[in-house]
Design a protein around this nucleic acid. Structure first.
Lengths: 226, 226
DNA sequence: TGCCTTGATTGATCTGAATCAAAGCCAATA
DNA sequence: TATTGGCTTTGATTCAGATCAATCAAGGCA
């Protein structure tokens, strides 16, 4: 329970109350769906372990990856508004989630104000994250996008106690491209370019960041001549 | 009060309670700031009248418009997570907002469950909206983006009782471009192209949609030969 | 072992949008 | 009435990334 994303600053009793609500666990195999677009919304999902992507579909079949999600993150927030899931959530590796019935969450957040406030912060953080992605998609060049993406992953791995400079990607070049608004070939070329500059080492999905400072400089420095 | 975005399905007494909280009104002149990035967060703002944009800034000065907002919409949701505003909100015409102290909103939403639930829906809707923009920025061509934008405005004007096919834009081509991830010249050309095809009539900021069906067809029909 | 599939890389070419540049159009102001 | 400045349109050129295409490596499997 304790490692879950919601409990912060709750006392023993409150954690107990919350624990009763989120008891139901679910396993999803690599490639499996946690939920699909159009499915009736009932619960949020807290990721206990694993790695998932969420993606929205256009009528004409094109799809856009809207996020990659790892341990401790909360999925399903988009579905509260319409009570129907507006995106697919697919496991990119075997994953485990806690199901959190939303009605119950609202009930107990009435009696645990700090839980309600924390939940609001989580929703708000998702909005801020999305604005960051909009900025990326709207005004960055391919290489800047990839640098931003890698630094974001790096930070999130670090926060979870993993190496910030040596990790394995769970997603394909195509999925990265979809998330970053690029074609897979462009993603591949951007990886190669960063490798040529000795900023990273790429071995398929295995990424090593050799010079995180220079990777950071890649963002927002288009004016600098190379 | 009644026209405000929050109250739905509340009884007289509840509307009264809420009214006590959102009493404080504020006027912002065209060009004025409702809030700026970095400002301490205290309140959400419900737009009573007018038209605003929100935009985020990069360190290097580039800015991205993250949304255009009109009567009945709620601003400031992004600031809940960090308790600091993460974007600027600028009035594009003289506007009037209600200030809603967030702490008080959380307090009363404990006693009015339907209000809490409605608030959650609003936050969730913002997330869904952002995903839509991500899709647009990540995978649409210039003309599709503009068509999507116009149809979105059209729908929102209609919902507010205005004409869906004849309206004035409050923002410049540059602001539209920033929102859509395009340069202003590209926006202008896309307008001209749609006009040449007799789908819309453009007279500077005055837009008339002559054939809304064909405008809709512009979205996701890149495969069709013109 | 050889055959297939899937994902990644790399090269060549094409194209949509950016960039650079020049006018035009108002509305506000002198 | 002339002038200024902000906004828009349009044209010419350039370029980043898309597209098309070939090759390669790593499994999976008959």
């Amino acid at each position: 329970m304790r490692e879950l994303c919601l409990p912060v600053g709750l006392n023993e009793h409150e954690v107990q109350v919350l624990g009763d609500v989120v008891s139901h666990k679910r396993r999803i195999q690599r490639g499996g769906y946690l939920h699909r677009t159009g499915l009736k919304f009932q619960s949020l999902f807290a990721i206990r372990s694993g790695f998932l992507k969420t993606c929205v579909l256009e009528e004409d079949g094109r799809q856009q990856v809207t996020g990659f999600h790892m341990t401790g993150e909360l999925l399903g927030l988009d579905a509260i508004s319409t009570e129907v899931h507006t995106c697919d959530a697919v496991a990119l590796e075997d994953s485990e989630v806690c199901e959190i019935p939303f009605e119950k969450l609202e009930e107990i957040s009435r009696v645990i104000p700090s839980l309600m406030h924390h939940f609001h912060k989580i929703m708000s953080r998702e909005i801020v994250r999305d604005h960051g992605v909009m900025l990326l998609l709207g005004s960055m060049k391919a290489e800047e996008r990839l640098a931003t993406f890698l630094l974001n992953l790096s930070r999130r791995f670090l926060m979870r106690g993993y190496s910030e400079s040596d990790f394995y990607l769970r997603m394909t070049r195509e999925e990265i491209g979809s998330y970053l608004g690029l074609k897979l070939e462009t993603v591949s070329r951007a990886f190669s370019k960063l490798q040529d500059e000795n900023i990273i080492t790429v071995d398929n999905k295995h990424i090593q960041i050799n010079d995180i400072a220079r990777l950071r400089m890649k963002i927002g420095n288009t004016s600098c001549v190379t």
